[in-house]
Computed example of a mutant assay.
Amino acid sequence: MVLVGCHVSIAGSIDLAVGRALDAGCDTFQIFSRNPRGWRAKDLESGPADAFRAAVDASGLGPVIDHMPYLPNPASPDAEIYEKSVAALAGELRRCALLGIPYLVTHLGHHRGAGMETGQERVIAAVNRAFADAGESDVMLLLENTAGEKNSVGTTVADLRRIMDGIDAKERVGICFDTCHAFAAGYDLRTPEGVDAVFAELDDRIDLSRLRVVHLNDCKGDLGSGLDRHEHIGLGSIGEEGFRHILHHSAVRSLPLICETPVDERRGDAGNIAKVRELAGA
């Protein structure tokens, strides 16, 4: 058995996400705790937060994962964007604590031409400041690998390790591994050897105990294309055989797997969850 789910909407009220996750057949699920397309976030009131926690407890689903909104860029050289990004990260850590969510996933952003080393230093400083501003909690921040698009920070396992090394509260940081992003960045996940190699590198450079969540997405682009375009499980360039190898790897079997796949006439969330279970059992 695998622990699989998808990203679900919080429309109407954040506690309604739990019912949507159940309807999709989730074991675990991911949300945005707020509007992901704006800077402003309405304060989270105790009523909806308590209702969310109660609904999660009653459902038996978990762990729940929160994802940072789209606009923050902790690698940005722009002072205004950077300050807003640090504030957004600290705010989201506080929201997770209120909601009882153990994991917050963040993209690492783009250095906008300032250079990889400068971008990584900006991310390190942003995370250290956000932890200090948010205060102590059990929420773990998960750094997500990127697809290798232009100016992106955190594409390789070595990049992730360098950023983690600079963060003061190392016990509060882990990894979210995105299969689409890894494939687009040049990690070949289509063969047993390729899958073994990437998880061996993660273990060697970071330690697999730091890997806490997998974003399970197929890729519309070719290997090493740098194209961050998700596809239905098994219908993209990684393919069904690749996902069989991923899903049978010991590093993955016990982790929460989140599908961030399309919803269209070919397949919806429930269909991708079913496909994951089929490939994991085959």
Rank of each mutant, 00 (worst) to 15 (best):
Asp27Ser: 15
Asp27Glu: 15
Ile31Asp: 03
Ile31Gly: 03
Phe32Trp: 01
Ser33Phe: 01
Asn35Gly: 04
Asn35Leu: 09
Pro36Asn: 04
Pro36Thr: 05
Pro36Leu: 02
Pro36Phe: 00
Trp39Pro: 07
Asp43Leu: 00
Leu44Thr: 12
Leu44Asp: 10
Leu44Lys: 12
Glu45Asp: 07
Glu45Met: 04
Glu45Phe: 01
Glu45Ser: 08
Ser46Thr: 00
Ser46Asn: 00
Gly47Cys: 00
Gly47Lys: 14
Ala49Gln: 08
Ala49Lys: 06
Ala51Lys: 14
Ala54Arg: 13
Ala55Cys: 04
Asp57Thr: 11
Asp57Ala: 14
Ala58Trp: 09
Ser59Pro: 12
Ser59Thr: 12
Gly60Ser: 11
Leu61Val: 15
Leu61Gly: 15
Leu61Arg: 14
Leu61Gln: 14
Gly62Tyr: 05
Gly62Gln: 03
Pro63Ser: 01
Pro63Thr: 01
Val64Arg: 10
Val64Gly: 05
Val64Phe: 08
Ile65Tyr: 06
Ile65Trp: 04
Asp66Phe: 01
His67Thr: 12
Pro69Lys: 07
Pro69Ala: 03
Tyr70Lys: 07
Pro72Glu: 02
Asn73Ser: 04
Asn73Val: 05
Pro74Ser: 11
Ala75Pro: 14
Ala75Tyr: 09
Ser76Glu: 06
Pro77His: 13
Ala79Gln: 11
Ala79Pro: 13
Glu80Asp: 14
Glu80Phe: 04
Tyr82Cys: 10
Tyr82Glu: 10
Tyr82Val: 10
Glu83His: 08
Ala88Lys: 01
Leu89His: 05
Gly91Trp: 00
Gly91Cys: 05
Glu92Phe: 01
Arg95Asp: 05
Cys96Val: 13
Ala97Asp: 15
Ala97Met: 10
Leu98Asp: 13
Leu98Ala: 13
Leu99Phe: 03
Gly100Ala: 11
Gly100Leu: 10
